[in-house]
């Protein structure tokens, strides 16, 4: 197994040197909006990862004399009712959003892949049962399930990540399954079976690489969805509890209470949220447009 991993890694390395650069080139040439959004997405990622280095102040650092200051050179996003720097709080909020967004989207994607591939490939009665279950699952409004789960197990980051991951994962499996069903009928899948490959090997080595395009798109768009859902929960007071500075929490806490005295308190996290979610969605769309025709063309 180790040797397989090595070779496929070696193969990926060989493959990725030119094609990845080539792909980035195509992204900028053919999808300028997508490229700009990709840059925003990457900046947001870096903000989240290096929050401790970038943020000028701690997210909970209080300056009682500098309360509710409007944006200035010292405090680009202003300060809140306790004199905390909004820029720092937004940057730390980005960190939480990155963690929650990527973990939940990651869990969701893995669930989608496993469920979608197995259900699509095996087909028959198994597929039927799984898909009816997915139908039933999708008929519940997301927010209601979230509120129910959070009110049962209590608010917290892990609960939110798991619930969102499960929720979006089951819904997303439909997309992967669709792709698998069309890939499954290809001759090369039969050819792989005829070489004596086990079902797992066929799924892992022959089907999965061919559905990577929808998987990548699913993941990027999910990141945006999760961040938005988490903000919604935080806004309702069911998200990550304070003092953690989530964007939704910033909006609902000081943002809402002091909106008239300091509109920047609501504007800063709101803008962060809008820009990042917009960027992830547009980036996902651009990826979809670029990846799909290539998959079709190479077949």
């Amino acid at each position: 197994m180790a040797s397989i991993a090595e070779t496929s890694q070696a193969a990926t390395r060989r493959r990725s040197r030119n094609p990845v650069l080539h792909f980035v080139g195509r992204l900028f040439r053919e999808k300028p909006l997508g490229a700009v959004c990709a840059v925003i997405f990457v900046l947001f990622l870096l903000c989240g990862i290096f929050a401790d280095l970038i943020a000028p102040y701690g997210y909970n650092q209080i300056a009682p004399l500098k309360r509710l200051r409007p944006p200035s050179l010292d405090f680009p996003f202003g300060t809140d009712n306790l004199g905390r720097d909004m820029l720092s709080r937004c940057i730390y909020g980005a960190q939480l959003s990155v963690i929650i967004g990527f973990c939940a989207a990651g869990i969701a994607t893995v669930i989608s892949i496993v469920l979608g591939i197995v259900s699509g490939y095996l087909g028959g009665k198994f597929d039927l049962v799984v898909q009816r279950f997915v139908d039933a699952w999708m008929s519940f409004p997301d927010l209601i399930i979230l509120i129910v789960v959070v009110s049962v197990v209590g608010p917290g980051m892990i609960q939110i990540i798991c619930t969102l991951g499960l929720l979006l994962g089951i819904a997303g499996s439909r997309i992967i399954r669709g792709a698998v069903v069309s890939v499954r009928e290809n001759m090369y899948v039969h050819a792989a079976q005829s070489t004596g490959a086990s079902t797992f090997r066929v799924l892992w080595r022959h089907i999965l690489p061919n559905v990577m395009a929808p998987v990548i798109v699913l993941f990027t768009t999910r990141v945006g969805t999760v961040i938005l859902a988490e903000s919604g929960l935080s806004f309702l007071g069911l998200g990550v509890p304070p003092p953690a500075p989530t964007w939704g929490g910033l909006l609902s806490g000081s943002g809402r209470t002091y909106m008239l005295q300091g509109p920047w308190l609501a504007l800063a996290p709101g803008l962060c949220l809008t820009v990042v979610v917009y960027a992830t969605n547009m980036f996902g769309d651009a990826l979809r447009d670029l990846l799909d025709p290539r998959m079709r063309g190479s077949r």
Binding site: R15, M187, A191, R205, H206, P209, S298
Partner: peptide
Amino acid sequence: MSSLNPALT
């Protein structure tokens, strides 16, 4: 044309 997997070398 279709018996080889397009995604693998």
